[in-house]
Amino acid sequence: MYSKLLLLLSAGLVFSACASENGEDQVADAPPTPTCNTANVTYTLTVAPLLQKSCTSCHNSNFASGGVNLSTYARVRTVALNGRLIGSVNHEAGYSPMPKGGTKLPDCDISQLRKWVEDGAIEN
């Protein structure tokens, strides 16, 4: 009886070792984390759509919450160059955290905004 049990245990170890070597016991790889592209940040293709998605429902020409209107390039550039845009979306001390009452924007969005501002906040 002990020899049968020993034989079964040995067979189980052999088969599990084979499965492990073949990667059969591994969980499927998680999808790769997308990288944040800050190489070609433009106002037209990156910044304006991001602001439209996250900001202009409150900061527009009809309702400029906090006196901030982000509906045109010129207005966005002013807020970008005076530091208020990055300070607010990054929830830095001394700035009103945006979006108001919401969670901070994704790190990639903030990185793209920061890159655009660092590059001179040009209209491109």
Results as ranks from 00 to 15, higher is better:
residue 62 N to D: 12
residue 62 N to W: 11
residue 62 N to L: 14
residue 63 F to K: 10
residue 63 F to Q: 12
residue 64 A to M: 01
residue 65 S to H: 15
residue 65 S to N: 15
residue 66 G to L: 14
residue 66 G to P: 09
residue 67 G to S: 09
residue 67 G to Q: 01
residue 68 V to Y: 00
residue 69 N to V: 10
residue 69 N to Y: 13
residue 69 N to C: 02
residue 69 N to F: 14
residue 70 L to S: 08
residue 70 L to T: 11
residue 71 S to M: 13
residue 71 S to L: 05
residue 71 S to Q: 09
residue 71 S to R: 12
residue 72 T to K: 07
residue 73 Y to C: 14
residue 73 Y to D: 06
residue 73 Y to R: 06
residue 73 Y to A: 05
residue 74 A to K: 07
residue 74 A to Q: 05
residue 74 A to T: 11
residue 74 A to R: 04
residue 75 R to C: 00
residue 75 R to Q: 11
residue 75 R to K: 09
residue 75 R to T: 02
residue 75 R to E: 10
residue 76 V to H: 01
residue 77 R to I: 06
residue 77 R to Q: 12
residue 77 R to L: 07
residue 78 T to A: 09
residue 79 V to S: 06
residue 80 A to K: 00
residue 80 A to Q: 08
residue 80 A to T: 15
residue 81 L to H: 08
residue 81 L to R: 06
residue 82 N to M: 12
residue 82 N to R: 07
residue 82 N to H: 07
residue 83 G to E: 01
residue 83 G to W: 10
residue 83 G to P: 08
residue 84 R to E: 08
residue 84 R to I: 13
residue 85 L to T: 05
residue 85 L to V: 07
residue 85 L to C: 03
residue 85 L to G: 03
residue 86 I to E: 04
residue 86 I to M: 04
residue 86 I to N: 04
residue 86 I to Q: 05
residue 86 I to S: 01
residue 87 G to F: 08
residue 87 G to E: 14
residue 87 G to I: 06
residue 87 G to H: 06
residue 87 G to Y: 05
residue 88 S to K: 03
residue 90 N to H: 11
residue 90 N to L: 11
residue 90 N to A: 14
residue 91 H to K: 15
residue 91 H to T: 04
residue 91 H to N: 13
residue 92 E to V: 13
residue 92 E to S: 15
residue 93 A to I: 05
residue 93 A to M: 09
residue 93 A to E: 11
residue 94 G to V: 04
residue 94 G to R: 13
residue 95 Y to R: 08
residue 95 Y to H: 13
residue 95 Y to F: 15
